[in-house]
Structure formats: C-alpha cells, structure tokens
C-alpha cells in the first residue's frame, strides 16, 4: 500500500514538473506575440508622444524618454552587435527576462506594477468570489430542482426562462439593475467603493447582478449534465435501495456530475483575479478589470506585458489545477 502511494505521488510530481516545464515555452510564445501585436500598432515614438503629451513635443524629448526606458534598442534582433548581444541587447530580451522572475518593474508612467496589482486585485476578488460561490450555489440548486421536475410544466417554464435570461446582454442586467435598485427603488448606491465593512453596500448590486446574469446560462448547462446522470443505472439502484430523491440528487447525481462542473469552475479562477472590465467600469470598482485596458489606451507597454504574462501564468495554473481536481473528484483518473 505504501509503495503504491509513493508511486502515485511520484507520478503526480513528475506530471506537475512536466507541465511546469511546458509552461516556459508557452509563456515565451505568449510574450513574443504580445510584443509583436503591441509594437505593430504602437511604435516607441508613439508611446513617447502619448506619455509626453501631444503638444509642443520635440524629437529630443522623445529620444530622451525612449532611452530612459530602454525603448531605444532594437525590438528582437540587434544586428549592430555581435555574439549573444544580438539577442540580449534588445527590448524583447530586456523586458522578458524580468517577467520570469515576477519582477514586473515600473509602469511607463513610473508606478510599481506589482504594488498596483496587489492593490487592485482585492476589489476584483470581492466581487468575483461571491459571484462565483453564490452563482454556483443558486445555479446548481435550480438545476437540480429543474432536473427533479423534468418533463413537467415547471421544467418547460424554467427552460424558457433560462433561455430568455441567456439571451439578454450582460450590459442590460447592469443598466437595468442600476436603474431599478439604485435609481427607482433607491436601496443601494449606484456605484462606488469603500474600504472594509463600508464596502458591503457597494458590493450588493454588482454581486446580485453577477449572480442573476449568470443564472440562465449556468442553470441550463448544469440541468443538461444532471439529466444525463439521472438516467444512469447507479441512480436507479440508489432509488431502489429506498434513498430519498433529495439524497439521490445531492449524494449521487451531483457527485458524479462534478467533472464538468470542476472543469468550468477552475477555468474561471484566472478571471477572478483579473476582474471584469464592464462591471468594474459601471460600478466604479477600482479592480484589475480596467487595468489592462487603461494601459492599452495609454500605450503603457510595461503594464500590458505584465498583465498578459500574469494572465497566462494564471491560466496555466488553472489548467493544471483542473487536471489535479479530476483525480480528486474521480479516483479512476490517473495523471
């Protein structure tokens, strides 16, 4: 038994090592594409102009700005140099190496990126985590309820309702929710954010809208999964044993339907940190949602590459976690 566990443990570690090693070329590739895409649209001269302002800017000040931030080097290949300097004396090498040590450095406007991320990550999490947890709770409950009443008018009505809710744009939920609860009924602030307990009144509306907005899609998706499971032999056996319908649904059906649920939920983990652009913009939440977009608009490449890199790392971690979670929810799966 001990030998078996050791062997299993060994296979998980080698799997994780392999996946982490695979991550390096992926991250370099993502970074390369980010560089290409960003510099196709924005030249270092354009970046300097945006940062210095468009009025009265001279070539001299543009050159100084580029030189100070290392944008005066060639992008990928420094043909003027020899040996390894052909690759190391470039913007790509210079900026990429630091990313792999998670040293994001300073933004082009001089702010510490790591500090800004750590500050802005929390408001995003304050919204996305409750939305995820409450959303899961409600969608799973509704889906189980609908699965229980499968084939009845309740099922049909619920499906119609879900499809209708899925068809409505997320923006409508936000604007409609703000109009109804903040403007008409005046029960919560329409936008804003605060620290500590005072933040609760600002979080109610975005969380409520996040949960309601995802209800249609989630319920429909989980209902399909549960209906697939509900006709299996083990369910029939459980019922035959005299287990209550509640017990059948929660103990057997839900447990066996966990793989697609876990896949969907773990894949969402990166977006919990990275926030939602529209929600944060409409509710004035100082999260990470608009950080990248603001950086793209202000052509702050330091932030763009840091956020893309962080996003890639989180997605890779999310996918690894998904694989590991499979083994937890279904012991038959081996890594």
């Amino acid at each position: 038994m001990f030998i078996l566990l050791e062997k299993e443990h060994g296979s998980v570690s080698s799997y994780l090592t392999r996946r982490i090693l695979y991550a390096f070329p992926i991250l370099i590739g993502v970074n390369f594409i980010t560089f290409v895409l960003f510099f196709v649209v924005n030249s270092p001269d354009d970046m300097a102009r945006v940062h210095l302002g468009n009025r009265y800017v001279t070539e001299n000040s543009i050159n100084n700005w580029k030189s100070e931030r290392g944008y005066d080097k060639p992008l990928f290949i420094a043909l003027d140099n020899s040996g390894k300097k052909i690759f190391t004396e470039t913007i790509f090498f210079d900026k990429t190496v630091r990313l792999f040590t998670f040293d994001f450095g300073q933004s082009d406007s001089g702010r510490d990126i790591s500090y800004d991320i750590s500050e802005r990550m929390w408001p995003s999490l304050f919204i996305s985590l409750p939305v995820l947890c409450l959303g899961l709770l409600f969608t799973l409950s509704f889906a189980l309820l609908i699965a229980f009443f499968r084939g009845t008018y309740i099922d049909s009505s619920a499906v119609i309702l879900c499809v209708s809710m899925m068809s409505i744009s997320g923006l409508f939920y936000i604007i409609g929710g703000q109009y109804l609860l903040s403007k008409l009924l005046q029960v919560v602030p329409i936008s804003g954010f605060d620290d500590g307990v005072a933040s609760i009144k600002f979080l109610i509306l975005p969380i409520l809208i996040g949960v309601v907005g995802g209800l249609g899609h989630g319920t429909r998706w989980y209902r399909t999964i549960f209906l697939e499971e509900i006709h299996r032999d083990y369910v029939r056996t459980a019922r035959a044993k005299g287990l209550s319908e509640k017990g059948v649904l929660y103990l057997h059906v839900l447990r066996n339907a966990l793989i697609p649920i876990v896949t969907g939920v773990v894949a969402l983990l990166p977006s919990l940190f990275l926030g939602s652009l529209i929600t944060e913009a409409f509710f004035g939440i100082p999260g990470l949602g608009s950080y990248t977009i603001d950086a793209i608009q202000s052509q702050d490449f330091a932030i763009v590459r840091a956020m893309v890199f962080l996003g890639s790392v989180l997605y890779i971690l999310g996918l690894i976690l998904t694989d590991v979670a499979y083994t937890v929810v279904d012991p038959r799966i081996r890594l």
Partner: peptide, 20 residues
C-alpha cells in the same frame, strides 16, 4: 452580520448614499 453591517453602513440620508 452582513445585513447589520449593511444597515450600519447606510446613512440616515438614504440607503443609496455612497458616502459615510
């Protein structure tokens, strides 16, 4: 607790008041 905190955070001038 969350409800109480919300009510405490709301001011006399309105539940939708974004300021303390």
């Amino acid at each position: 607790v969350a409800c109480l905190a919300f009510l405490c955070a709301c001011s006399d001038s309105g539940w939708n008041n974004p300021y303390p």
